[in-house]
Design a protein around this nucleic acid. Sequence first.
DNA 1: TAAATTTTCTTGTATATACAAGTTTTGTGG
DNA 2: CCACAAAACTTGTATATACAAGAAAATTTA
Lengths: 238, 238
Amino acid sequence: MTKEPNTPLYKTLIGDLKKQIDDGHYRKGDLLPSENELCKRYSTTRPTVRQALGELARMGYIIRRHGKGSIVSEPKNGLGILSLKGSTAGVGRKNLRTEILAKAQKTAWPADFPYELTEVQLTAGCLYLTRLRHVNGLPTLYEETYITDIDLPRFTVHNLEKNSLFETLNKYHNVEIKEGEQKIWAVSADKNLSKLLDVKPGKPLLHMKRSMQTNRPHLVIYSFLYCNTEEYFIQDYF
Amino acid sequence: MTKEPNTPLYKTLIGDLKKQIDDGHYRKGDLLPSENELCKRYSTTRPTVRQALGELARMGYIIRRHGKGSIVSEPKNGLGILSLKGSTAGVGRKNLRTEILAKAQKTAWPADFPYELTEVQLTAGCLYLTRLRHVNGLPTLYEETYITDIDLPRFTVHNLEKNSLFETLNKYHNVEIKEGEQKIWAVSADKNLSKLLDVKPGKPLLHMKRSMQTNRPHLVIYSFLYCNTEEYFIQDYF
DNA sequence: TAAATTTTCTTGTATATACAAGTTTTGTGG
DNA sequence: CCACAAAACTTGTATATACAAGAAAATTTA
C-alpha cells in the first residue's frame, strides 16, 4: 500500500484499489476484499473504507451488493470511443492515437464563448488546445479545449499526445473533475470539419459541448467535440 | 421534516433538501444550513448529514466548499432538453409534452437486442414502451424503453404521460437508478424516423442507447432514443 | 442425500467524538 | 477608521462502536 504524505487515507485506498482493478489483479466479477478485511490491511475503520468504496462505486469500478460484497465492474470514467460493430470490442489504447493540432497556450476567451464566465475567469484567461483523435488510423474525434488559466504553472510543457489531459491535471496540478454537464446534438459536417474528420460535407456528426467543474472554485474546463460516428460511437457513463 | 416509515434518515434529508431547492426555498447561490444546524433540526449526527449532503453534491444540487458551506446549485439529473438558442432558456415543464405511443406491456426481449442479458433477465422478459416528447409542439425525442420485468406488479397501470418514469419506479416500486452508460452517435433520419419526428429523410439525428443499472441486481433499464436536435439539444450531467 | 435451519459474513444505517484545515466574523490596537 | 489577529464557524478526514438486513456457508434434520 502506498500512503503518500498528506494524502487522506481514503484517497490512498481509492488509488490502490483502482490500480489493482486497472492492472487486472481484480477482474470483472471478482469480489473485492470485504470492508473488514480492508480495515485490517490498512489499519483503519469501516467509515474510512466505506468512503473509499463508495467513491469507487460511483466511478463505476465496483458494484456494491448488500450482504454479498463489492463486485468488480469495468473501469469507466470519462468518454470512451467504441466500435459500432460489437459493443464489447472496445478500442484498445494501441488503436487510439491523439494528435495535438494546437498545443496548449494562453489565450483570451473567445468573444462569443457559449458559457457564462465569472470575473475571475475573465481576468485569468484560458489555455486553449485542440486535439484530433484517430481510431485505427481514422480521424474520428476533433476536440477544442479551454482550461481556465488559474494556478497552472508550466502547464504548456505537458505532452498531451501521450498523456491524458485529466490525469495530467490531477497528477501535476492537483486538479480533479468534480461534476460537469454536456450538451449534445447532431450537425452536418461543414467544409472545415469535413476536412478535419475526412468525411463528405453534409455527413451527420455528433457535436458535444462539455463544461466541467473542478475542485478549484473558478477553474472550469470546457470541451467542444465533433465526432464522426459512422464507425465509432461515443460512450460515457453517469 | 417528513420522516417516512422505513426510510433511512439520510434519505429523508436528501428528499427534504431536494424539495426545498426545487421549490425555490433555497435558490442558486444560497448557502444551505450548516452541517451542525441540520444535525439540530433532524436530531442526528454529522456523518448522517454529511452522507445526505454528499449525495446532493453528486447529484449536482449543491457545491461543497471547505470552510464556507454548501452552496445551492441548479438541480440537475437525468436528461434534459434545452433550446439551442440561449443555454439558459430551458424548456419549462409546460412546454414539454410526453405522448405514449405504445403503453408499457410485457414482451420478450428482441432477438437482436444490443445488450448482453443475464439468464434471470431472459427468463423475466421485459416491459416495453415507446414515447414521443414534444417541445413547444415540436416532436423532438422518440424513445423506446425496455424495463426488465422483475418485481414490478401492476406497473402497466401507471400514467407515464404525466409522470416521470424514474420517479414512478422510485415512488411505487422502490427502484433507483444507480449507474449507467450511454452510447451516442449521429445518424440520418430514415423513413420511419422522419415520419415520427416530422423531419426530412436524411436529416441528422442524435441516436443514444442507454443502459441503467438499478438497486435491484438484475433489473436493468434500457432506453433507445432518437432526437431531432435542430432546435433543441440534449443536456445531461456527469 | 437433500432440504431446512442456523451461523457467519457481508454491506447498510447510524451515533458519538475528535482533530485538521479553510473561511468568516468579531474584536483590538494603532 | 482600517488593518491585523483571534475567535468562531464551516467542511474535510478519521476513529470507535452498534445494530439492521441481505447473502453465503455450515450444520442439522428428515
